[in-house]
Structure formats: C-alpha cells, structure tokens
Design a binder for these strands. Structure first.
Lengths: 216, 216
DNA sequence: CCGCATCCCATGTGATACTG
DNA sequence: CAGTATCACATGGGATGCGG
C-alpha cells in the first residue's frame, strides 16, 4: 500500500494515489451520473473483474470519495461531496480524450452512463441558455437517453424517450462523433444516415449540434 | 497491449488508455514546465524505475503526446501540441489533490517542476492582473524558484533567485500549504516560522497569498 | 557519464468459480 | 445479487549492466 505512493508532496501525485489506479476514475465517472448499485456498476463496466470492482469500491470508500448509500435494505454506492469534486477532472479527461477517439471498433460499447457524461462534457450552457427549452430522445449504440435542455441546464435521464413525447427523437450511428465535433453538418448527418430521425422536427438536429459541441 | 483497453467508446476511457498508466501523467506534469532530458525526468521522479521511464516515454511518443526534441546532439523530450492540451487535466488533478495533501511526511520531496505546476494551479490571473508586477524568490524544500508575476501572467524559472534581485525572498516550511489555502494568515505564517523571510519587503507576502490561492 | 536494457521478484490484475 | 476465493499472468519496482 505505502509502496504505491509516489514519494512527492504534490497535489497531482496525491490525486493519482487516490484515483490513479486502473478503473477507479471510471467508477467515479458512472457515479457522477447518480448512485449506483454494485451490479449496475458492473454492468456499466463490463470488462472489470468483480474482485477489482470490489477492491476499488473499498479503496474509494477509505479515501472518502464514495460511501455506501443511506438507504438500507439495498446497497447503493454514491459519491461524497469530495468525490463529486472530481467532476472537473473527469470532464477534462473526456474533453482531451474525445480528440483521440477515432471511430468505434466493434468490441467497443457505449453505456448509458458514459454517454451521459460525454453529453455533459460537450454541453455548452451559454449556448443553451439562449435557446428554447428542448427535449431530445436519443439512442447511441445500446444507450437510450432522454435529454432535457432548458435555461442553460442539462438533464439526462435513462427513461426510454418515446418518440412522441420529445421534440426530436433520433438514433445515432458511429459517426455521431463528427456531428459533435462539427466536422459533419446536421443536414449531411441525416442525409448520409449517420443520424436516423425517428420522430419530431428534424430541423432541431441543428439545435442539438450547437448545444453539444467538442473540438476535435 | 490491446488487453489494456477498456472496451468502451468514450472520451474518458480513451484518455485513460493513453495517459492512465502509472507515472505517465507525472511525466507530462514535468514536461508542462518545459522540455526535459531523460536524466532530468528521472531526477524529478526519483522513485520511477528506469525501465518504466523508458517504457512510458516510448508509449507517450507513440500516442503523439511527446516527441524527442529537435535539437540533435542531446536528446530532449517535449510535449506536442496535443500533449500540452493535457494541462487542464493536470491542473484539475492538482486542484483536487491539494485538498487531500495533509502535511508532508519525511520521505516526501518537493521537486522544482512539481512546485512550478502547483504554483500554476494556485495562480489567480484575475487577482494578479490588478496588482503591481512582483518578483518573488522562494525556496520550498529542495526547490528554489524565481516567481515573476506581471500583468496577470505568471512565469516561474529555476534561476536561484538572489535575495537582492527580487521584491521578496522567502523560504517556506511544510506549512506553506495552509498559507495557500488561506487557513494561515501571512503575518502569522511569518510569526510562527512557517515562512522565513530572507530578504525584501516582508509585507509582500500578503500579495503572494492573494495571488496564489487554492481552496482546502 | 547519459540513456536506456536486462533480470528478478513482489504485487496488482484478469478470468473464472464459488458462497452467503 | 453482492460480493470472495483462487490461480495464472502481466506489470511495476529495484538493482545492475552496458553501449555510445
């Protein structure tokens, strides 16, 4: 344990000692979306061995980053206030990593929680504040999300968004990354089949693209 | 190699695949200060095994994060543009880790590069912009730095700052963290010996404390 | 010397199986 | 469902070697 320290008195090293282990920040990423049960975390991180998940949860608890939720009966893990302060770290990593993502490979999956955090990363509150409130229903790979944007605030939920109940409903293929990066115009995304509009007003994809943007 | 991937199509996982290995972000941290030779990196990371340093340098090169510097004759490693974009990640980690630093233990060292990045993390450009240009000479553990603040810009160099050539010269003990966090007032820091003024106008420590601040 | 490469061993990780 | 247990293996750590 003490052998895993870096031997420096420095904020960066301290941070890496606490959340630098493999998988740790991905657990934090998913918990930033909301409290999760052990099995939900395992489902969101399909490649994590169960012993590693258990070990990380114990370490993160001891570090004061997560806690076992208050609702007894069922065990729920949630971030502490200190853990929630890791959000800027996760967003910065997401912003940087976005540029190196390339196109998805077959074995790569998209989980609802990772997609939710990606949307938070790309969200431009200043732009959204100047636009009318909008509800999107979006399907990315296996993740189906309802995206509620209103008054510069973003809310993403896992409700299956019925096409009828939102302003725009669409399914996105692998090319969505280029829509977010601005390399692909919304019209062309629809024309080329990168985005399949399932319902609602298709011209709202423009609004979506200006609300969610990340440099490539 | 491919086994070290997370199997998700997500910016955070991609980032962690590239810089999530042990020591990688600490190499980046030091290179954010400036180009460094192999031996300089090793000196700034005393606990890193040489084989690991060599391996990381190779991986970071292949990922397009660092390159071997242009000056032939001597080998110098430096960040690429993409590598330099990791600065927000390092600063966010430093900000978060600062709160968990506690007091330094005997085996923990302070290196010039880690201290330089810590100063960048704590630097408040907006505050500095409203203050007169100031030069500080500071010694922290083994790191002796010259800190030049002017017009909202910060420049830290490793020149041994002769007491005479700066506005304030001081040596800081372990308690400096509490000065930066605001827990300890500048006057009291001097009175209690946490800060030893070596030369210049001691009242400038006030200015230093308002220029460099991080929440605890 | 500096910039690594090699060796060896302790530890962490990953896949699978198993239990309360 | 929420974890442990086990074991093979990969990686990290420390010392040492070595060529340019």
């Amino acid at each position: 344990m003490a052998a895993r320290e870096y031997g420096q008195y420095c904020g960066v090293t301290r941070a890496l000692e606490l959340v630098g282990e493999r998988w740790a920040l991905l657990i934090v990423r998913d918990l930033l979306v909301g409290p999760r049960r052990y099995g939900e975390l395992a489902a969101g991180l399909p490649r994590i061995p169960s012993n590693i998940l258990a070990a990380r949860l114990k370490e993160l608890q001891e570090a004061g980053i997560i806690r076992r939720g208050p609702r007894s009966r069922i065990v729920v893990y949630e971030l502490t206030d200190y853990g929630r302060e890791l959000e800027p770290v996760v967003l910065a990593l997401g912003t940087w990593g976005f540029k190196a993502m390339g196109d998805p490979r077959d074995e790569q999956i998209v989980t609802p929680d990772s997609m939710t955090m990606a949307l938070r990363t790309a969200f431009r509150a200043d732009v959204a504040a100047r636009l009318p409130a909008t509800d999107y229903g979006a399907r990315f790979g296996g993740a189906e999300l309802r995206i509620h944007v209103a008054g510069g605030l973003l809310e993403v939920t896992r409700d299956a968004a019925l096409a009828a109940s939102v302003d725009l409903s669409f399914a996105a293929g692998p090319g969505i990354r280029r829509l977010i990066s601005g390399e692909l115009a919304p019209d062309r995304a629809i024309d080329t089949g990168v985005i399949e509009v399932l319902g609602g007003r298709r011209e709202l994809l423009d609004r979506f693209a200006s609300t969610f943007h990340l440099a490539a």
